[in-house]
Simulated assay, not measured.
Amino acid sequence: MNFSGHGASFAEPKGGFQSRIAYAAAPVTADQHAENIPGAPAALDWDATLRFRHHLWSHGFGVAEAMDTAQRGAGLDYAATRELIRRSAAEASGPIVAGVATDQLPAGPATIDEIRKAYAEQLADVQEAGAQPVLMCSRHLAAAARDADDYREVYGELLAQADGPVLLHWLGEAFDPLLAGYWGGDDVVLDIIAAQPAKVDGIKMSLLDASREIAMRAALPAGVRMYTGDDFNYPALIKGDSSGFSHALLGVLAVIAPPAAAALRALDANDIAEYDRIMAGTLPLARHLFAAPTYHYKTGIVFLNWLAGHQDHLTMVGGAQAGRSPRHLLTLMRLADDAGILPDADLAAARAAAWLTTVGLDR
């Protein structure tokens, strides 16, 4: 398979952005020599994992650490998560936020008190590491909450405990079916924010519903930002309109960082046509990458980062490299070339040829 090589035109880092805040949710690189099989503790290649974060910082992005893109709740256990946050924050050469959840608890039922304590423990870990906390949705709380007041109580206590402003994170059921019905309604999260607005930097919405995000954005108190997590509609949501715009905290930015950085710099310069042109080239890739079942998108991100030369193998923690079919990944390769995310055409071609042989698609 041949590649165009036009991704090289986006390869040179050129600094940050002025008009939008943009965090890339980063994946992890597994240690290919360890037992990264389903159910085993995660073993990471720390050098490759951290090197990729420096790649994102060099292009002007902040790093959203230990989020679902890093396989939280899908192979990355909390011992590895805590070490990941600590190491990334210690090496940060740009902005860093990090996920706070309840995944140190065993799977299954938990009491509200256990959930409250688990959240508080992780909040303390993130703050001690020096990263800004992102209060992630909790599968345990989704199962245990009797009504909206339980969400108000748990989140209200967390915000009161936070040293400074945090980000809230709303992950929809397309990304995690166990989070269906979280909060109990849009008005609940707005109540939580309104009660302590000085403690909320913003909210990330990953519902893949642009109209709902725009409505929520309009309802936020002054000074509280919307961070789009909509990997289907991010170009228009970031660009915005007369009603406002969204900042970004996106998994797709982990693979489209070079062209997306160029697009955001064009937006800074008010070159809307160039912004639209570059972002439009990434959107077919993003929509295929996050196609249903959406929660397997991490497999595609690691596959594309391997093609682009950011890691040397396809092994993932928990054996998640099996999450997408060869046909899905073959289409992803073609869309990646169109989007301009492969800086070394020869390397991508060599790796593609080897992979096509192993999966039986070389003829």
Rank of each mutant, 00 (worst) to 15 (best):
G5F: 05
S9C: 04
S9T: 09
A11R: 13
G16C: 14
Q18F: 03
I21S: 12
I21W: 09
I21T: 15
T29R: 06
D31V: 00
P38S: 12
A40W: 01
A42R: 14
L44H: 05
D45R: 09
D45Y: 07
D45Q: 10
T49Y: 02
H54V: 00
H59K: 02
A64S: 13
A64C: 05
E65P: 01
A70L: 09
G75A: 09
A79F: 11
A79E: 15
T81V: 08
E83L: 09
L84Q: 10
I85V: 14
R87E: 04
S88P: 09
A90M: 00
P95F: 08
I96P: 12
L105G: 14
P109I: 00
A110V: 05
K117T: 13
Y119T: 06
L123F: 03
A124L: 05
C137I: 10
C137T: 13
C137A: 12
S138C: 12
A142K: 12
Y151R: 01
Y151H: 03
R152Q: 12
E157T: 12
A160V: 03
Q161M: 11
D163W: 05
G164L: 01
L168S: 05
L168Y: 03
L171I: 11
F175K: 03
L179H: 10
L179E: 09
G181N: 13
V189R: 11
L190C: 08
P197I: 06
K199G: 13
K199V: 10
K199H: 15
D201S: 14
D201Q: 15
D201R: 15
I203P: 05
M205Y: 07
E213I: 09
A215C: 02
R217G: 03
A218T: 10
A222Q: 11
G223H: 08
V224L: 06
V224A: 03
T228E: 00
A236P: 05
L237G: 01
G240H: 06
S242C: 02
H247C: 05
L249P: 02
G251R: 00
A254F: 03
A254V: 06
V255E: 04
A257N: 06
P258N: 02
L264H: 04
A266W: 04
Y275W: 02
M279C: 15
G281S: 03
L283G: 00
Y295T: 05
T299Y: 02
I301N: 00
W306T: 05
W306R: 02
A308Q: 02
T315Y: 10
T315Q: 14
G318F: 07
R324K: 13
P326Q: 11
D337M: 08
D338R: 12
D346E: 14
A348N: 03
A348W: 03
A353S: 14
G360H: 08
D362C: 07
D362W: 08
D362N: 15
